[in-house]
Amino acid sequence: MNSKSYSLFLKDFKSELRTRYAINALAMFIIVAISVILFSVGNEKISPSLTGGLFWVVIFFTAMSGLSRAFVSEEERGTSLTLQLIAAPSTVYAGKLIFNIILVFVMNTIIAILYSAIFEAFIIKNFWLFLASFVLGNIGLAVSSTIIAAIISKAGAKGTLYPVLSFPILLPLILTSVQLTLFALDGISFERAKFELAIVVSYDVIMLTASFMLFDFIWKE
């Protein structure tokens, strides 16, 4: 990551401000997903452990609705070629990754705030553990979704394939993150959650390395 990828991120950011490709869809999706849960729950009291799981369900599907834009928008408009002519593949991946990480953080922070405001059972007893798992989980989510987005942007069927391809790759991350969120809801200490935290950290590192190594193959057709 360097100033070049940062400039690419700025390009995407400015472009996003003008076209609002991802932001509008994401914002609406968050509202839709949370209201679907609210309607289906009705007046039932749901348990804290269920809210923890549903929290990640909302995050997963929201991510799937917006994160593919980073590459799909370039491919649809035919500007991938232009990017290839001005930047090395690693710069492109890093730039898109910065964009998606920021998008994921903004979107998940909004989800977390809305979520804790709406669901009474969603009370976090160990805030710092929640924050740690939230940050690490978001990074992993962004890294994997970005490389899968690159794959589907080069494949034919765009929208439908994205969650299908992403889910198995994200499954270990989501399972562990759900577990960590439950720990945070239960007020379990860092000491007892360190195995899960280590899993998420290594997931982030390994996925990041693999993505940078494999991106060349995707990008150079």
Partner: peptide, 27 residues
């Protein structure tokens, strides 16, 4: 394209395998 993209996907899927092995017994 099919060969390249599906190969890349198998590689990515392959690196997730160890995580399943470590996580499953805990959960």
């Amino acid at each position: 394209k099919r060969a390249t993209l599906s190969s890349v996907y198998s590689m990515i899927a392959f690196v997730t395998v160890p995580f399943f092995i470590f996580i499953m017994p805990r959960i």
